[in-house]
Design a protein around this nucleic acid. Structure first.
Length: 534
DNA sequence: AACACTCTCAACCGCTCCACT
DNA sequence: CAGTGGAGCGGTTGAGAGTGT
């Protein structure tokens, strides 16, 4: 279309003027194209800033490079993407995230811009349709590849834990990229508090205020670039640095959200539910939240959002009643407008909103599904035999899950049995060492795997120094300073002093709160969820 | 036919990385 | 080692086309 317009413009040009004199920006004319092509044929690609000097084109080097790369270079493939290409893009996006240039290297003749545009429009389409992004076969393949890379390393030692994680860096990198990317994916980019606020919040957890912090408001509403975020940003950390820190920085910043698990032990249902929602939301990177203002929202989905994949509903899952669409959701007039400022990470922020929203949903629908449960005395099809409270909530979750909802998607229990299993009160003992400290490792065979689908998920339930999260440990005498020191040292070794300190504080709080179960389960679930790459 | 809305995509913008000095 | 400029990348924008009412 633009080309047609350009051609018309060419014809209308005054005879004594060249297009290059008329256009210093905007659409390229065919004459400009010809000049550029001629230049490249003579001088080759590169040195784009010299184009203007040599040809008189009033285009900057950037513009020339872009024009050449996207439209003029030979062997460019135009037209709609083939099914093969679409699948490849899905696979690549699953692995790489929004690395369009890298993806284009795998698609001869396709430009990064083209792929990007395609993906973005596809996202919007699928979001509107309430469908998952990735075909199940693509996801399964990713799972298998991830598992293979993990299984080659072994899980028998702490060092190997690191080694495994590094081995599977590629795919985990995609997760991180996605999580980073998804800071822009969430309906808005949450505002992380500064560290002092964050510490205040942590301290606040020491008291009963923990349940109120969500409504407190931080005066520092700063929108920071990721690189400036103390927990999400680089913090001097390269992406290529020890990978788990990327998760930990999420975990650490999610301590607030963990407080959602620190509710009354008598209220396990919502706790479970919250923690699941929490983990899911985070791992999606699809931090869900409702922006209180009417600002335009930006929606995007991450790569590797395994939990969002509804294996049985690719292309078929209809929009669900509560969250008909993301658009609807983000317009949801949440009353928790100040929460975002208190969250320590974008992911976290989205999580909190999501949890509160979920709580509201749960509250409002409690009667509904309790009626449902009481009415359905028979087992729910497709649910596990030992249908428990957990399953009750699972059912509820499924009822309200939307594959593309900011909360996440279809039942997290269906999609991630590792998480479901992690909710089990059957805890594994401390049995491994990690950097000289006790480490409790979750092995894949401890994961509930009722069917093949779930097996593929459970395989990803890789190791993690659960000593950092283990409730047994937390439940130990909080006065046992030696144990705490070891723990903090382990944290410090792994993640740095700041996080270790935060961790210690949280464990102190947890110990004092007598609500350890919810906390540690939540934390455990999240860590397992994140580290398993699901 | 007119209008509103959505979709597509080319182009731009801001940023980071890297090589060079 | 710091500064600088070029190249490349990812996100965003805006115009035109398409579609629905």
């Amino acid at each position: 279309m633009r080309r047609m317009k350009n051609e018309i413009e060419d014809e209308m040009l005054p005879n004594n003027m060249t297009e290059s004199q008329l256009n210093d920006e905007g659409p390229w004319t065919s004459s400009e194209d010809a000049i550029l092509v001629d230049y490249v044929q003579k001088h080759g690609e590169g040195n784009w800033n010299a184009v203007q000097k040599h040809t008189g084109l009033l285009r900057c080097g950037k513009s020339c490079r872009l024009r050449w790369a996207n439209h003029l270079r030979p062997n460019l493939k135009k037209g709609t993407f083939t099914a093969q290409e679409e699948r490849l893009i899905s696979e690549l996006h699953l692995k790489m995230g929004n690395k369009w240039a890298r993806m284009s290297a795998h698609l001869p003749g396709r430009t990064d811009n083209e792929i990007k545009n395609y993906w973005n429009t596809r996202i919007k389409r699928r979001q509107r349709a309430g469908l998952p992004l990735y075909p199940p076969e693509v996801c399964s393949q990713a799972f298998q590849e991830s598992h293979q890379s993990q299984s080659t390393g072994g899980v028998n030692s702490g060092n190997k834990v690191r080694h495994d994680l590094l081995n599977s860096y590629e795919i985990h990198d995609a997760i991180i990229d996605s999580m980073k990317d998804n800071q822009g994916i969430s309906p808005y980019v949450p505002e992380p508090p500064d560290i002092s606020d964050y510490n205040k919040m942590l301290k606040g957890l020491d008291s009963s205020q923990y349940c109120n912090f969500a409504s407190s408001s931080s005066p520092n509403h700063k929108r920071l670039r990721e690189s400036t975020m103390p927990f999400l940003g680089s913090s001097g950390m390269s992406r290529n640095v020890f990978y788990p820190f990327d998760h930990i920085r999420v975990n650490a910043s999610d301590k607030i959200a963990q407080s959602f698990g620190m509710q009354s032990p008598l209220d396990h249902g919502p706790s479970l539910h919250s923690s699941m929602c929490y983990s899911h939301s985070l791992s999606n990177g699809n931090s869900s939240t409702s922006k209180p203002t009417s600002e335009a929202v930006k929606l995007e989905l991450p790569s590797l959002q395994y939990p969002e994949i509804d294996f049985g509903s690719w292309g078929t899952s209809p929009p669900l009643p509560l969250l008909d669409s993301v658009d609807d959701f983000v317009k949801y007039p949440t009353p928790i407008s100040t929460m975002e400022s208190d969250c320590s990470s974008p992911q976290n922020s989205g999580l909190l909103d999501a949890l509160v929203y979920q709580a509201k949903t749960m509250s409002s629908s409690k009667k509904h599904y309790s009626d449902e449960i009481s009415n359905s005395s028979t087992a729910i099809p497709g649910h596990r035999a030992d249908s428990s409270t957990l399953n009750m909530y699972e059912t509820e979750w499924e009822d309200y899950a939307d594959p593309v909802s900011p909360f996440g998607a279809t039942s997290i229990l269906n999609e991630c049995p590792a998480i479901a299993n992690a909710n089990s009160l059957d805890e594994t003992p401390l049995d491994q060492t990690f950097n000289g400290n006790l480490v409790k490792l979750e092995s894949a065979d401890q994961v509930w795997t009722p069917n093949s689908e779930d097996q593929s998920m459970s395989l990803l339930n890789i190791t993690w120094p659960d000593i950092l999260l283990d409730e047994d440990w937390l439940q130990q005498d909080s006065d046992n300073s030696k144990n705490q020191t070891i723990r903090t040292d382990a944290m410090s070794t792994l993640f740095g002093d700041d996080l270790a300190t935060d961790y210690k504080h949280m464990t102190d709080v947890a110990s004092k709160s007598s609500q350890v179960w919810g906390f540690s389960s939540c934390a455990r679930n999240h860590s397992a969820f994140c580290l398993s790459g699901v």
